[in-house]
């Protein structure tokens, strides 16, 4: 069925969102048509405003409205502990735990030479400059525990260690609530390596 042009444009727009197929796009478009005009206008404004006002922090690379961001300017945070993550959304995940009070460095990706992503394409030179400026005693690497994430972690460790800074990697282990018998060999062996005294 061919929809009127404005509706077709809306469906096509939703289709571009990650994880949204034509059926879901159609459902979202019809949902919007059912909502009051003010609500839809508010949603559209929120999208444009977020796009206009959000930027990356020049120091850590997180999303922020003001540069430098709240994490980098907060005097209560430990500036000597730096946590390196792959994506800005990883910062929010770590913040949700409430356990980390240091500052962040977002790489905006992981090393993937076949996709043309090398150290220069990430924010690694910036990380080296940040550490070289002094004041950082520990770098915690919290990249994803997959091939690209591990390779990036290994690269960072090699880059940072000669600067005399302690480098740590977040622990690998069993997920909370999971059964031991279902754990794979790699996770189990890594959790044994990373065991702690009680």
């Amino acid at each position: 069925m061919v929809y009127p042009e404005p509706l077709e444009k809306l469906i096509t727009g939703f289709c571009r969102f990650p994880g949204i197929g034509p059926k879901t796009a159609q459902r979202l478009a019809f949902y919007l048509l059912d909502r009051p005009r003010e609500e839809v206008a508010g949603f559209a404004r929120a999208m444009v405003e977020a796009k206009d006002k959000m930027r990356f922090c020049s120091q850590c690379g997180c999303f922020t409205e003001k540069d430098p961001c709240g994490f980098c300017t907060d005097p209560r945070r430990e500036r000597a502990v730096l946590c390196v993550v792959q994506e800005p959304r990883d910062v929010l995940v770590l913040e949700r735990t409430g356990q980390f009070r240091g500052v962040y460095h977002v790489l905006h990706g992981a090393l993937s030479p076949l996709d043309g992503i090398g150290p220069e394409e990430l924010r690694l030179p910036l990380l080296a400059r940040r550490i070289g400026a002094g004041g950082i005693g520990e770098v915690i690497i919290a990249t994803n525990p997959n091939v690209e994430g591990d390779a990036t972690a290994a690269y960072i460790a090699r880059m940072v260690k000669p600067l005399g800074v302690k480098v740590t990697r977040i622990a690998f282990g069993l997920p909370v609530g999971g059964d031991l018998e279902y754990a794979d060999d790699l996770t189990l062996s890594r959790s044994l390596e990373g065991r702690r005294e009680m």
Binding site: L111, P113, L114, V147, D150, A151, A154, Y155, R158, D184, D185, L186
Partner: peptide, 23 residues
């Protein structure tokens, strides 16, 4: 899993070689 080649992801020198062979 029968075999994991863990060192490829933990050694920055080895990583490009492993990647090259697979690619």
């Amino acid at each position: 899993v029968k075999e994991h080649f863990i060192r490829f992801r933990e050694d920055p020198d080895l990583y490009p070689y492993g990647l090259f062979l697979a690619g």
